[in-house]
Amino acid sequence: MTHTLTQPTAPPISASVRRHGLTEQAADAAVDQACRMLRLPTIRSQFEQIADDAAREQMSYRGFLAELLMAECDDRARRRSERRIRAAGFPREKSLRGFDFDANPNIDPATIGTLAKCDWVKNGLPLCLIGDSGTGKSHLLIALGTEAAMRGYRVKYTLATKLVNELVEAADDKQLTKTINRYGRVDLLCIDELGYMELDKRGAELLFQVLTEREEKNSVAIASNDSYSGWTKTFTDPRLCAAIVDRLTFGGNIIETGTDSYRLAHTKAAQTQ
């Protein structure tokens, strides 16, 4: 004869408990139980503190309830933002607050502030960050991508060469359509280090397919160390190069970060000191 073991469940909060007064200890236990059942971890962890504050400030029942619910909503929004930032795959943490605008006068803080509102992502427009190594391109790319993730957009970061290699492998495994669709679904695709290495014709054509899939639907942001005139070294087919430039610039924003390396200047200043 077999016996089935069942997990013990917490007793329900009875109507009699709801009708009659509770001691503080019993009320806390009831709240803890209800929060577990309803999956409200923030209210469960902050209830006592918020209740004490409400009593001290003589808050109304409605005000107290609003404080509890807003705390839960705010914490859920924070956790969702953190999940989207992790899913983006940024190689390191960068923020606009941590960007030194004084060190690079080529970059207008007001322009970056406008981009941080992410209207360009909402409208599916491209963004190009063009400049020499060490001028802040990758920092701004990651920081603006992070802002987009915090505002609820799905973001994916990748290096240009890594993306091309992934597309080539997908094509060889007959998974190209699936891979292109996956990159096509995100709201913002951040492609870093475009122009650092020459791409063969096949790799360039596969990258072009990703850009075409996203054209006028979802945003692409790129960081490149070379101006558009120099992209023929990366995309050796002139027609293909022109088509890619067109897709990455039409209706979008172009930020030129200049030629003076912040990292080099910082290193020289440190050595001088």
Rank of each mutant, 00 (worst) to 15 (best):
C128Y: 01
G203S: 03
H139F: 05
F90S: 12
F99Q: 02
A54Q: 07
L159V: 11
A204N: 03
L167E: 11
S133P: 10
C190V: 06
C35Y: 14
S261G: 03
G152M: 13
C241R: 03
Y61H: 05
P91D: 01
N225W: 06
T2W: 13
R247G: 07
A29G: 11
I107Q: 11
T23R: 08
A269G: 03
V164F: 14
I130N: 14
T267L: 14
R185M: 05
A88M: 01
Y228C: 13
V245P: 00
Q33C: 09
A243W: 05
L140V: 06
D246N: 01
F101A: 03
F47N: 08
E57N: 04
L69G: 09
A223P: 13
D226N: 13
A77C: 14
G98P: 00
A77T: 10
G230I: 04
G98H: 04
K137T: 04
N253H: 07
P11T: 00
F250G: 11
K162Y: 02
P11I: 00
I130D: 08
Y153K: 07
M37I: 13
D75H: 14
P12E: 15
K137I: 02
G89N: 01
M150T: 07
D74S: 04
T9Y: 15
T158E: 04
R239T: 06
T111W: 09
L176Y: 01
Y262K: 09
V121T: 08
G131H: 03
D53F: 09
G251D: 02
D28Q: 15
W231C: 12
F64R: 02
L40K: 03
L68Q: 09
A110C: 06
D119H: 13
K174R: 11
S45A: 15
R44C: 08
P109E: 12
N181D: 15
T259F: 11
I13D: 11
I255R: 04
A116G: 03
L194A: 12
L22P: 08
M37A: 13
G251Q: 02
L140Y: 12
G136E: 01
Y153W: 07
Q175V: 05
I222S: 00
E147P: 01
E169W: 06
D246Y: 14
T158Y: 02
N104C: 15
A51P: 03
E48N: 13
T111E: 07
E213P: 02
